[in-house]
Design a protein around this nucleic acid. Structure first.
Lengths: 163, 163
DNA sequence: TATTGTTATACTCTATAACTATA
DNA sequence: TATAGTTATAGAGTATAACAATA
């Protein structure tokens, strides 16, 4: 009897969490894309530049693909457009002539700085909308959520009857 | 002096939060798409079916577009493919011959049930990976985060020098 | 042979503009 | 004239398969 209640509680919580995850993934993406539209960047393009921005000596194409969870033909297309806009360079690596080295240009770094400033204003607005006690926990909770999400195994196949 | 420290604290927190939001939007979307791939559905397609599933009497095309934050030509394409797969119907509304009424078919409802079962297994795994005290707060924190994100005004233009 | 990355191809989504049909 | 929705078109991302060059 008590077990039944617990099971239902867990299921209500799960249903809520599923709805939240969907809204979160959908809404957050729209927000980020809206922010980036001002700079004529797509989210995958920004993601790529962000990875380059965090490091210091550039990345190979496969490192970029791995870090952004993309396939290599996808990466090729994204970097094509960034090169065309002069935001990154893509040059052959002299130590391994198969590999390419992608790096931010000065213009790319400058654009990232402009975006950071914009983002920071937005984030400050966000934090100010929170109560002080909410502000203390929000980062830790989001990080924990993300870590558990990323740690869970990917579904490989459909669960069949009899759960 | 104290103000300087507070300002830096706020900025560190903001930088962390920005990184988290990016990872969250990116990672969560990949996870959801991975889940849906098993059923040969894209996230926008699932989003659309999910909106229809929550209501009872179907939606017009513009209601769908509004609820999923999409433009109407985008909606047309998504619904085209769902109709083609027999997951929804799209029929003229007799009371307003300009409008269309989109509804889930039995097959569509059946697919949603299969997806729900799969999702539930995944979500239970997620909740079990959390500590009991984390489980109590996670939903509330995510909801609050989402509400504040959605309430913030969209950026219309770039912030210029002098912040 | 294995690895790095590209090209070719096809499909989905997104955005804009022009259009049809109904109100 | 305004509203609901589509078609046309173009661009971006995603996935697979086939390929070239280097290791």
């Amino acid at each position: 009897m008590n077990e039944m209640i617990d099971r239902n509680d867990l299921d209500n919580e799960a249903a809520e969490l599923e709805a939240l995850a969907l809204r979160l993934s959908w809404g957050l993406r729209h927000r980020l894309q809206q922010q980036l539209e001002v700079f004529s960047l797509t989210l995958p393009q920004y993601m790529t530049m962000n990875i380059l921005h965090r490091g210091s000596s550039g990345c190979s194409m496969s490192e970029l693909a791995e870090a952004s969870n993309q396939l290599s033909p996808t990466m090729t297309g994204i970097v094509d457009r960034l090169v065309e806009r002069g935001l990154v360079t893509r040059e052959r690596d002299d130590r391994d002539r198969r590999a390419l080295r992608v790096e931010l240009t000065d213009e790319g770094r400058h654009l990232m700085a402009r975006i950071s400033k914009q983002k920071r204003a937005w984030t400050r607005g966000f934090l100010q909308a929170l109560l002080p006690e909410e502000r203390v926990t929000i980062n830790a909770v989001l990080l924990r959520f993300l870590e558990v999400v990323e740690a869970l195994p990917a579904p490989v196949d459909e669960i069949k009857a009899g759960e």
